[in-house]
Write a protein that binds this DNA or RNA. Structure first.
Lengths: 203, 203
DNA sequence: GTCTATACGGTGATAGAC
DNA sequence: GTCTATCACCGTATAGAC
């Protein structure tokens, strides 16, 4: 049995298929699931509607589920890179969040939380999309947990802290968009550094 | 100049108007802005469409903006009540979050974060709705801040902590819905208690 | 003033030409 | 296999009868 690595999938994937997914990701982040029409995807990605249903026979749900999976891989990669910048987990987490805060500021805080709106809009009606989001969050969780465990935290504490971190980041992105100001991100960056340091095993 | 208190507004408000707003609030929370149609509102609230545009000439945006304002008042009230249960701010915050966790569990985690999806879906396109959400968040912020300042925190720390709390709660509700499990809420309840206690001025 | 019937645009999806 | 033309449906909003 051979594992298929993401990069292989991407290389195998046709250019148009990839363009559809990228466009969907972008629009989901800006306007949510129901706010993003397939006509808009078709226009922006410059692909005929027929191709869209050729590559994704299950229609919108399938495109979104796949876009989420792809996005999740990208986030994981970025996260791993950012967390590797500091040995100290408190500093590392702060670094990552401040990095994201800059990203928000560069886009007038109209970005961030690419999964949240999909969860909120669809979790009740589509089990498939809910699961895709849950899995994506799980992947992000894992990266944080690895960092915390490597820093000496026991499993239970690491799990609690990682959920706290992900929740705070998700919420802060939403607050930032509402206020058009990334200050909430900077605030949680400081708070989470304090929290992690307070719980850090000194042994 | 006389201030109009919320209760007066509610009493003055016609029964149908109120029913429209309640229905909208409920559906917004479950399916978001674009996922909620006015036809659905009309059907569920048992009000003819004509009345809808009679009471809200600006249409959907106005209904949603008003629903958010009303919801925000309700949240404030609940929050004030919950935070008053303990003098210790760390315990009080934990109490409130665990209260909300129970609320989620009682509804299969399909509730919570009534403002988030509106922000994510509309902030880019409608300044009016973005502002309504920002103001609603501001109201919630205030209640937490009052509690923290009353407990001896200086203003700057109280503001940072209150944003951390609101962000974590918002994010945890989303994670809970994705996972169909309120554990994220319980996790942040524990983490935030630790954080607040760690920063609590002992003077 | 309350309500019904309708307009018109956009939605997701598909049939069928090439 | 790729794509275009079109479908039936639902979205918000409005006109006009009572």
């Amino acid at each position: 049995m051979q594992a298929i690595r993401p990069v292989v999938i991407i290389q195998t994937m046709s250019e148009t298929k990839n363009r559809i997914l990228e466009t969907m990701s972008e629009l989901l982040e800006r306007q949510g699931y129901n706010g993003t029409g397939l006509n808009e995807i078709v226009k922006l990605s410059q692909t005929p509607k027929g191709s869209l249903y050729h590559y994704f026979p299950d229609g919108k749900e399938e495109i979104v589920a796949e876009a989420i999976r792809q996005k999740s891989r990208g986030i994981q990669e970025l996260l791993r890179h950012n967390l590797a910048q500091h040995d100290d987990p408190a500093k590392a987490v702060r670094y990552h969040i401040e990095f994201m805060a800059q990203h928000l500021a560069a886009h007038e805080c109209r970005v961030g939380a690419p999964l949240a709106s999909v969860v909120l809009e669809t979790a009740t009606h589509s089990e498939r999309l809910r699961e895709a989001c849950a899995e994506a969050y799980g992947n992000v969780h894992e990266v944080f947990k690895e960092k915390l465990v490597a820093s000496g935290f026991d499993d239970a504490t690491a799990i609690r802290l990682m959920k706290t971190i992900v929740a705070a980041v998700e919420g802060a992105m939403i607050l930032s968009r509402a206020q058009k100001d990334n200050q909430p991100m900077l605030d949680i960056a400081a708070s989470l550094e304090i929290l992690i340091r307070a719980e850090l095993p000194t042994a």
